[in-house]
Design a protein around this nucleic acid. Structure first.
Lengths: 169, 169
DNA sequence: CAGTATCCTGTCCGATACTG
DNA sequence: CAGTATCGGACAGGATACTG
């Protein structure tokens, strides 16, 4: 039902691939961005994104089916809907923050066009990944991907044992 | 030169849109994922991703031109190249971590298939966004997007003033 | 092993016109 | 205002065969 470009990604079972499957197309991410900023109405999205209305309709529908947005009727006559982020949609914000940080660092030679600022201090924030359990910043040296409880054979091949352990056998 | 589906995204000047522009297509992200895990060779990528070789070639080329990978000749005859992550490519890892966390939380009803674990303790990590400046977790309540020094008119319209300030006028 | 060369298909997207 | 309907184009991606 949901138009998915690459069903293969879901088959991979990798959570990253699965996320990509759900986020679907590029517009989806920008729609999520606007929704996080408080946009809820069709024409607000359309003006902000300069997206063709038929495309916006299609994306909005797909996002509703994917559980990222919930449509809510705010007027019965005439029938008017608005699009509210679900929990799942709001939980996408770390991805947006990471994309923002990456873009600002690498593709803004003339300076940042959008910054994330601390509302209390007004200082420009530097979003980074930490492990909420240990409190330490995540680096690929200190942390590693490992097969989880639901891992299948493919996952075990890809993420299987870290190299140092493998060498012992 | 780089095949870009939506030049419009770059025009937007939004750092998120720009990042999407560079990351380009879905395969790109999965290639980055594998590269982060240590994959460097053409056939390793191909086997891991089950991607058609011509597509892989195309992606690898585009990613080299986008500065995500650097091609390095490791054998002169026969000529053999390997693909090494650049700094820019490695800096993409927070996005992958955020996608991993989102996928694990929302699209793994049967349990996690891939987990991030703390190499020291072996505990499953919970990747989250913090502000490296203030040390506080980033929420949309405590932090907000604001136009940066290089913001253009469009950005000001979108990220302009926060709502509460606007209400005072 | 590490790709290149062709041909083809899917579908995301854009433009435009129209409607309750 | 909030969409729907239709048509067309571009390009990522797939399949396959071939090469140094």
């Amino acid at each position: 039902m949901i138009p998915m470009r690459h069903k293969r990604f879901d088959k991979m079972e990798c959570p990253i691939a699965r996320s990509l499957e759900r986020v679907g197309e590029w517009w989806t991410i920008l729609i999520l961005r606007d929704a996080l900023l408080g946009t809820t109405r069709f024409d607000e999205f359309q003006k902000s994104l300069e997206i063709a209305p038929n495309i916006l309709t299609r994306r909005l529908r797909a996002m509703e089916e994917a559980g990222l947005l919930q449509r809510r009727r705010y007027s019965e006559r005439p029938p008017r809907d608005e699009y509210i982020l679900t929990r799942r949609g709001r939980d996408f914000s770390p991805v947006l923050l990471a994309l923002l940080a990456w873009g600002n660092k690498h593709f803004a030679p003339e300076g940042e066009s959008v910054s994330l600022v601390d509302a209390r201090t007004g200082l420009t924030a530097v979003p980074a990944m930490y492990d909420a359990v240990s409190g330490r910043p995540i680096t690929m040296r200190d942390f590693q991907f490992r097969p989880g409880p639901a891992a299948n054979e493919r996952i075990h091949r890809r993420y299987g044992a870290p190299k140092r352990e493998r060498e012992t056998k």
